[in-house]
Design a protein around this nucleic acid. Sequence first.
DNA 1: TGGTAGAGGCTTTTT
DNA 2: GCCTCTACCA
Length: 756
Amino acid sequence: MPHATNLNDRQREAVLTTEGPVLVIAGAGSGKTRVLTERIGHLVGDLRVSPYEILAFTFTNKAAREMKDRLERAHPGSTEMLWVGTFHSTGVRILRRHGDAAGVKRDFSIYDTDDSTGLVKAILARNPNDARFVKSPRVLRDRISRMKNDLVTPADAAERAISAGEQRIAALYAEYERDLRKANALDFDDLINKVVELFATDDRVRELYARRFRYVLVDEFQDTNPIQMAMIDGLASVHGNLFVVGDDDQSIYSWRGARVEHILEFEGLYPATKVIRLEQNYRSTKTILDAANGVIAHNLGRKGKTLWTDGEVGDKVRVTAALDEESEALAVIDLVKREVAAGTSLKQIAILYRTNAQSRALEDVFVQASLPYQIIGSVRFYERAEVRDVLAYCKAIVNPDDSINLKRILNVPRRGIGKTTIDQIEALAAERGTSLVDAMRAAASTLGAAAAARVHAFLVLFDELREMAATDVAPHVVDAILKSTEYHKHLEENYPDAEARIENIDELLSKAHGFAEGAETKSLSAFLEEVALVADVDALDLDSGQLTLMTIHNAKGLEFDAVVVTGMEEGLFPHYNSIDDPTAVEEERRLFYVGMTRARRRLYLTFAGMRRRMGMMEGGVPSRFLNEIPERTLEAPVEPLVSPTIYGGAWSPRRDYARSLRDEYAQPEPHEAYSQEAFAPQAPVVSGVHVSSHAPSSTGAVEHAYTIGMRIQHERFGKGIVRKVEGKGEQTRVTVIFDAGGERKFLAHYAPMRPL
DNA sequence: TGGTAGAGGCTTTTT
DNA sequence: GCCTCTACCA
């Protein structure tokens, strides 16, 4: 059997059991991606199944691409007809072909989270009395999204509403749905929702797909939500050859409506199910697995399994304490340096964290140290204002009914169409029940002459671009938008950081060019579709030779030789919002488990004694998860971490553990610039440091009386002059301009600094 | 209509 | 600490 060699018995069973429902419980690193790919290879290569009859769901586009690449190598030509993609991209594919039956027009636009929020905002503006029922447009949008994911319609919501507030929310939800239809737009949830609706209303279409796809495969099954489950169920309704792979211990998307129960209830739903468990791990060392197993064992709500490996024991897990987030970043650099010295390449190292906000402090220090890194997520490319502006032009051009995006660009760049004019046009649109563009075309009579002329000028430009988009390729249209609106000039005139913004616009343009080179359909609408569905991880380049920074959520499914999980503090990880809810803490624990099991050879954990949160410095306490790691897997000494005073009590830097590392960064010129070569592999170096505290030494409880103009001495940055003093008591912040150049802000209470 | 300054909210995680 | 919205003035 060409497709069952080099597999263990269980894996082979999973590959060869092609008929009927199969549930594979696949632990972290147990080779599930391989099983999925080999299984498709077996179907195509050995059983002569046409790729046309196979549909596979992956969690990201990147995973889909990788699976296709692997298959293409093994069976050239086989992937052309194969459908592999995310639920969302598969939904789009189906809706573009057969959406009509569910009332979806073929040329619909896709609203991303920002667009949806804009729509909700507009609805709330129309219903000022309802604002008191929701905290913010975003909260309402999330709530609507949750209902959609749970198959709750506006009518259901109205029926279930017990309070007046719930009644109104149901009404706003209904209005949101109406407005989406009016704008000929689908939000992310609709991309799946409408398929389910389609299957329910039109049996012929459902059967068309269900007959075609004799084999349906689902990866990351633990993170499917009810609406996705309904879509899967519809697709598997004819042949029943449904193969799902998941791990209940890695379920980390319940906040998005995902249900682990889908794993637990699968056998009940599909009675003939064959269950296969993959528990042998091929990724991590014995020590890392032991540590991860020890942590996840604290969860009560799990099916229970124990991963094992016959790999080597490996190095122990190292915990590093830092004074604040800056020292934490320095500690990370130090760990990276050691890894590189030991022969690990930068691209095989990942720095993970709970929240995107944590990346900033890391980045600041990495930049200073010239450490090459790539960051996934954070300020997302497609969410930058300038990129969104240009995309709004594209969206409005493709679909002029898209009032949200049309409104966004009406006066960007400034063309004298201000609030008053827009209000008038909107009123006219509401009065006549037409779209915004139509109201603009009709507005000449109601507007003043000057305003009417400006609106007319916009419409001329808009129509020209529309005409062009009907026939020309995406990059040309994007280029025409930029030229005709003099967008570069607009950026230069209005933003001090215009250069960076222009770079982003150029990148968008080059993405459009790249798209036109590779895609079959090169139209603007096809480009928008691609753009709407890309995830941040899709951009991850593991061959860039750089260090990778990302959230643990983004790291799902990936693996690295060395992994550093930062921010191991109560409140951050587990996060404040989860800390009072045992179920939520269990999900946080699973998230930590996912982070730990990304590591192949070495795992590092760091925490900071204090950290800036929304501008305020706050004290931190080591995460409870650290205490759950079996001591035998940790580098000694562990004592300070398991101290009974940890919870509740304020944490202070333990000077006993401030060791060699501190001195390294205590000099005035702390970050020697690490060139690319400095990070090239060298001969292994033996490290003797265990739990190390990364703390610029504290000055203790010295009274701080800084005044503007005062000369000061800072332990690390040398002499300087006080420029600004803000706040009082422990919160006193002092801004200093250093003689050596550079301005910095410190908390007077904590900074290693004294008046001269 | 546009520019600016100050207030207020925000950070969990994402297709 | 940063971004967005609002209020007010030119």
